[in-house]
């Protein structure tokens, strides 16, 4: 007997909605290719909240994130003709946002002066920290407070899931530097969280 989760009706409904979404997406892409402003706006409104959160992770401030988002969407509209549809549109746009964020950082700091801080890696204690009671804004605040290079490596490794070798190629650094920057980011984040917890605890006791 089929479970309700796998019932043919459910599958058909899911397939239908997925097909409808794909059709909508291809219509949106087609409209953007033709330069229709309404379709461009629809695409922007659909994807911008998600992409803005991505940009916020890579940028030190909201204004920088706005710049990244703006630049990325201009690139999206310019190069939408090259989108072949072999991956979801969302991934394609996200990739552009990340590349734009990396370029943005590269422009701000003419050359990355990544220092090898390999020794830190060994000093990072394996601390069990619970993040469940932090909301998105608080965690984003911690990430934004990280130094520029640590933030890039942390985002690419921990959130996007790239390996250190890929990150090294993307940022034109060595694999070792990528690892050490990640370790440093982790250490700084742990310190920030601990400090935050200490302040919260002190506040609670003060009351």
């Amino acid at each position: 007997m089929l479970s309700s989760k796998n019932s043919p009706e459910k599958i058909n409904l899911r397939e239908c909605s997925s097909r409808a979404a794909m059709r909508d997406e291809s219509l949106l892409v087609e409209g953007c290719r033709k330069g229709k402003r309404r379709k461009q706006r629809e695409l922007y409104e659909h994807y911008s909240p998600y992409m803005f959160a991505v940009a916020m992770r890579y940028a030190p401030s909201r204004l920088d994130a706005e710049d990244i988002l703006q630049e990325a969407f201009l690139k999206v509209f310019e190069h939408i003709g090259t989108f072949r549809g072999d991956c979801p549109l969302e991934f394609w746009i996200k990739r552009i946002v990340i590349n734009t964020a990396l370029n943005h950082n590269r422009r701000k700091h003419v050359a990355y002066s990544f220092q090898d801080v390999a020794e830190i890696e060994n000093l990072v204690p394996d601390v069990e920290l619970t993040l469940s009671h932090y909301n998105f804004t608080e965690l984003l605040g911690f990430v934004q407070k990280l130094p520029e290079r640590c933030r890039l490596v942390f985002n690419l490794y921990a959130i996007e899931g790239y390996g250190h070798r890929e990150i090294a190629e993307m940022l034109e650094i060595t694999e070792g530097t990528s690892k050490s920057q990640y370790a440093r980011a982790k250490l700084l984040l742990q310190e920030m969280i601990k400090e935050n917890e200490r302040v919260s605890y002190a506040d609670a006791r003060g009351r």
Binding site: P49, A53, A65, E66, Q70, L129, Y157, A158, I159
Partner: peptide
């Protein structure tokens, strides 16, 4: 640690405002 961060940050949405 990274996975916890990923769970919390990935897929989040924020309003960029009308100016952009």
């Amino acid at each position: 640690f990274a996975d916890d961060f990923k769970k919390a940050l990935e897929g989040a949405k924020m309003d960029p405002g009308p100016v952009v």
